[in-house]
């Protein structure tokens, strides 16, 4: 019993030590093994020193609004040493600022201000953020956020946004205000900026109410990437759709084989010309895989039966997503 207790205690302490070690490496904000190019990209110039936001902005009030917004944001809140989190300030992203303010004095800045001039720093000594390639730009954020238990970034690095050169700042405007989160009802306008095809799909007569602002792109997609294609929020297409359409999820006694794999075999997720957002209208949709009922034989079907059968298959096959009740003819024909 005692031995078991000691094993458990040892394991717990070892895990705790490892955890603290991980946290410590974070606090030092050091790469695990220094790689020159990486450090240069993140730090900017090695011959510059960190001087702190206070020194950067001591005399120049040009950036005060940005500073105030930033300090009120989630990242700014971490500027307190008491949080034990990395100190996030201007130089965390822009690189060390000693060279930028070299030669400037508080008096000189004030003198310029009296003449109505803004004293400019030597911006060229900062990281050239505007011209960084997207993966490097994202790394400025990821240096903290991939090592900060930010688990919505779990799949970011191999996700389609990252692979296709979308960076964090394409969506998050760090200097726009204290609120870095995009408002849910504004997301579709932001996404439309790149996805014009999706915007057009949402204009079709049958669509999910995204343009109306009733649901948002992020209800289905996690822009930070997931394990699924198309950045789907859930583990599969069906799991994503049944977040809202749970009545069609099943499992059912009688399953529709096509629905086993994909809802999008039959439905277009954004919008369609056809009712119920079908990719093709009925009965064409169904006749792609299924043989139609007999007709034109002079025996079984007359014109009325043809019309009845080939207007909407789902008028009769009403439980097409699956059912627990057998059909009148036996088995699963989705009639009941």
């Amino acid at each position: 019993m005692a031995k078991r207790f000691f094993i458990l205690l040892s394991v717990a302490l070892a895990v705790l030590s490892l955890a603290l070690a991980g946290c410590e490496s974070l606090k030092r904000a050091e790469p695990i093994v220094p790689v020159k190019e990486y450090e240069k990209m993140i730090a900017g110039r090695f011959d510059a020193n960190y001087v702190g936001t206070g020194n950067c902005l001591k005399a120049c009030h040009f950036h005060d609004k940005i500073r105030q917004d930033f300090e009120a944001s989630t990242m700014g809140a971490q500027m307190s040493g008491r949080t034990g989190m990395p100190i996030v300030d201007c130089e965390s992203c822009h690189g060390p600022g000693s060279l930028a303010i070299e030669g400037l004095t508080e008096e000189g800045v004030k003198a310029d201000a009296r003449e109505g001039k803004q004293t400019e720093c030597d911006y060229d000594t900062f990281i050239d953020i505007e011209n960084l390639p997207a993966p490097a730009l994202s790394l400025i954020c990821l240096k903290c956020h991939t090592a900060n238990a930010t688990f919505n970034l779990h799949n970011w690095n191999a996700g389609s946004h990252a692979v296709n050169d979308v960076s964090c700042s394409d969506c998050h405007k760090v200097h726009a205000g204290p609120d870095l989160v995009v408002k849910p009802r504004d997301t579709f306008q932001m996404c439309y900026g790149c996805h014009l095809d999706v915007k057009a799909e949402f204009s079709l007569p049958n669509h999910h109410p995204v343009p109306e602002g009733k649901i948002t792109c992020v209800d289905c997609h996690d822009t930070h990437s997931t394990t699924e294609d198309e950045l789907l929020r859930m583990d599969s297409i069906k799991a994503t759709c049944t977040q809202c359409h749970a009545e069609k999820e099943g499992p059912f006694v009688f399953e529709h084989a096509g629905q086993t794999e994909e809802c999008i075999s039959c439905h277009h997720q954004h919008g369609s010309v056809n009712s119920y957002m079908l990719v093709q209208s009925e009965p064409f949709l169904c006749l792609q895989c299924h043989t139609g009922h007999p007709h034109n034989t002079g025996v079984t079907f007359d014109a009325e039966q043809k019309a009845a059968s080939y207007t909407r298959c789902t008028d009769c096959h009403t439980s097409i997503h699956g059912t627990d009740i057998p059909s009148p003819g036996g088995g699963g024909r989705f009639i009941q």
């Binding site: 790469p31 790689v35 990821l142 799949n155 690095n157 191999a158 499992p251 006694v253 627990d324």
Partner: peptide, 22 residues
């Protein structure tokens, strides 16, 4: 992640779905 140059992630998920009628 290793300096951002090497990043790896692993996800394991197990799920059970029940139809409480049938």
């Amino acid at each position: 992640t290793y300096t951002g140059r090497l990043a790896a992630s692993l996800t394991l998920s197990k799920s059970e779905h029940d139809n409480r009628v049938s």
